[in-house]
């Protein structure tokens, strides 16, 4: 029974998770190391990597600041409409990526609400870098906030109150007490946010316009290469994203392991008898 169940679970995970990873590397290296590196050495691919990094470098910090602000307001204060606010923060998770991209086309596209206004000023958002950044920001809004909110709610506000009662200012309490208490959840949220920012496909696909070397991010470039039957370069670039994903998983589990260990420490100290003061 036990080995049968284990075997079935391992087979399922092997088929669904491990095999796809193996295929990526097998195809990427099917023409050896030289094929792999040649696949990445193309200038369009280089531009795609650069654009992907730009989108992440802008959207991740924006959502870190947002996540910290939202978590502070929600976890440290009582106000009406709080659970509605939490639902709204999670909304981008429920919006299909295609629809997410489409929202920005409707706002800023040629036929969009601000289309004429933008065209008159010779500004482009859709089919240009700003649109890609916007779409990436939208799909990554919840990541940091949703890691921080439950943790900060559970921590309460006693430590911050203690800091204030000892004379600390608001920012001092935030940087010296709050941040150290949430740092691992923050890192966790950031790596998940980053993984999504680097890997977003649907939303970015709608607003990008697929101009090679200009508005193609890594996932879009993979699509182009794949559709042109350039399998080795497509999988070579995919393998970079796979490495990013695996690194994300390793970091995530390392953080979980760390926090589990520090939790186990709490309350383990012996209650030792004390002598009265001399």
């Amino acid at each position: 029974m036990r080995w049968g169940l284990t075997g079935a679970a391992v087979a399922f995970l092997g088929l669904m998770l491990i095999l796809p990873l193996v295929v990526v590397f097998a195809t990427a290296f099917s023409k050896g190391w030289s094929g792999f590196s040649a696949g990445l050495a193309d200038s369009d691919s280089f531009a795609a990597v650069k654009l992907t990094l730009i989108a992440a470098v802008i959207s991740v910090p924006l959502n870190i600041i947002f996540g910290l602000a939202a978590a502070w307001a929600i976890a440290k204060f009582e106000f009406r409409g709080k659970s509605l606010l939490i639902t709204v923060i999670d909304l981008p998770f429920s919006v299909s990526p295609i629809i997410a991209g489409m929202l920005f086309v409707l706002l800023f596209g040629a036929q969009g609400w601000l289309g004429d206004w933008l065209a008159a000023r010779n500004m482009r958002i859709i089919f240009a870098v700003p649109g890609i950044v916007l779409a990436t920001v939208f799909v990554t809004v919840p990541f940091v906030a949703r890691e921080l909110i439950p943790l900060m709610q559970a921590q309460g506000r006693e430590e911050e109150e203690a800091a204030l009662s000892l004379g600390a200012g608001g920012w001092q309490a935030f940087f010296r007490v709050t941040i150290p208490n949430i740092k691992w959840a923050l890192v966790y949220g950031v790596i998940l946010c980053n993984a999504r920012a680097l890997g977003e496909f649907g939303a970015v696909s709608v607003v990008s316009g697929h101009i090679q070397g200009v508005t193609n991010t890594m996932p879009l470039q993979i699509e182009v290469l794949y559709n042109e039957y350039k399998f080795v370069p497509a999988f070579a670039m995919a393998s970079l994203l796979v490495l990013m994903a695996l690194l994300t998983l390793v970091l995530k589990h390392w953080i979980e392991w760390r926090s589990a260990r520090s939790l186990a420490q709490i309350g383990s100290g012996p209650d030792r008898a004390i002598a009265p003061p001399r």
């Binding site: 430590e159 109150e161 203690a162 800091a163």
Partner: peptide, 16 residues
């Protein structure tokens, strides 16, 4: 609270 010059010991200590 910052300016009151009180020392407050919290029930669950609130140690950093």
């Amino acid at each position: 609270v910052r300016e009151r010059g009180v020392g407050f010991v919290f029930q669950h200590y609130a140690l950093f």
